[in-house]
Computed example of a mutant assay.
Amino acid sequence: MITPYDHNALWLKAKLFLHKAMEDEEVRPFDERALWAALALELLAKSALARQSPLLIATPDTDGTNVLIALGLIGGTARFESVPAKAVFSRCEKAFKPFNKREAEKIAWARNEYLHSASAEFTRIPESAWWPRFWAQAVVLISACDKEIEDLVGYSRTDLVRGYLEQNKKNLEHRAEMLIERARQRRAQYEAGTLQQRVANEWQPGRVLTAGLGHSEPVDCPACGAMGYLEGEDVSGVDTEYQQIAEDDYDVIVTLTVDASYFSCEHCGLVLDDYSLLEPAGLEDTFYTPGDASDVAGYEGEYGND
């Protein structure tokens, strides 16, 4: 019997669904193919997490049954329940960069709307634009499973997927360029006194645009050159240096490596609220910021026994 949290079984099921999703339009309409693809995306995400540990997809319950099943301590007729798609995508975003949970959730929401409402349309996004966005997320999960594109879709369809990925890259570059040019134009209109009142009501120089994430770093704005801020929540690295300040006393200097996910500039109003836009805009996807001793694993500070 195949266990419900087996990552290989989840991968094979995703592969089966993708086969249905990539059939010719004459066989299945786009709405139906998109539905199969959306189901496959969640299975890929679960497979990637379960490959690391089945505990990552086990639903927490009061008596710990799911956790015990995932650990192989309970068998028989015990039923295993996995966490919902929202939790799966959130965990994948943290574990497998640059997976984007918001993009994945949009796909899942469209799937739910299609299944549970009276709507006969999966999405209003044109098929030509939908597939590049889908594959941008799926390819991250394929890599997290230590697989290649051809392992999932076969050699005959690999070039098609790579074409979608290249198109998505160009779409991101165009969007970043558009946002930068709009910010430059907005600043120029403000300085010339020709900024429309409607726009002026939404943005004025100096208005706080930061997201309030846990860490930030000042950097040059790619639109106007003024000081903007990269922000991020997730710390991907901790570097420590010990400096002796007395015979038996040391200072701990901690530097955190933070994954950037947001940029804003008060001077021109540029906001990049998706880390997939940072690189096309010429910004780094990580930055360094000072930490403290509490960020070092195992550090307990002074015991206070003097």
Rank of each mutant, 00 (worst) to 15 (best):
S128Y: 09
G72Q: 13
P290N: 06
T65M: 13
A120D: 09
D249I: 09
G282P: 12
L71Q: 15
T65S: 11
V254K: 06
E105A: 12
Y229A: 12
R207S: 03
S53F: 04
W130P: 02
Y229V: 10
F89T: 02
L44M: 10
A200V: 00
W203Q: 10
E166V: 03
R186I: 02
N171W: 12
S47A: 15
R28W: 10
R157H: 11
E81N: 12
L115G: 00
Y114E: 05
P205G: 11
A34D: 08
L73T: 05
W131Q: 05
R133H: 07
I149M: 08
Q189H: 14
G72I: 00
S261H: 06
W131S: 01
E26W: 03
K86W: 05
G76C: 06
F287C: 08
G64K: 09
D24T: 11
A223Q: 07
P84Q: 05
Y164V: 01
Y229H: 14
L230C: 03
G291H: 04
A110E: 15
G232M: 09
L56T: 05
M178Y: 13
E93C: 02
N201M: 07
Y262H: 14
R133D: 11
A246Q: 11
Y250P: 00
D239M: 07
C265L: 04
Y190E: 14
P280Q: 10
T240D: 12
C265W: 06
E23A: 10
A246N: 12
L179K: 15
S82T: 09
Y229N: 10
E121M: 03
P84V: 02
L10C: 05
G301R: 04
Y164S: 01
E42S: 03
C265R: 06
Q243I: 12
T123G: 07
S261Q: 13
A192P: 01
I180R: 11
G212I: 09
D31Y: 07
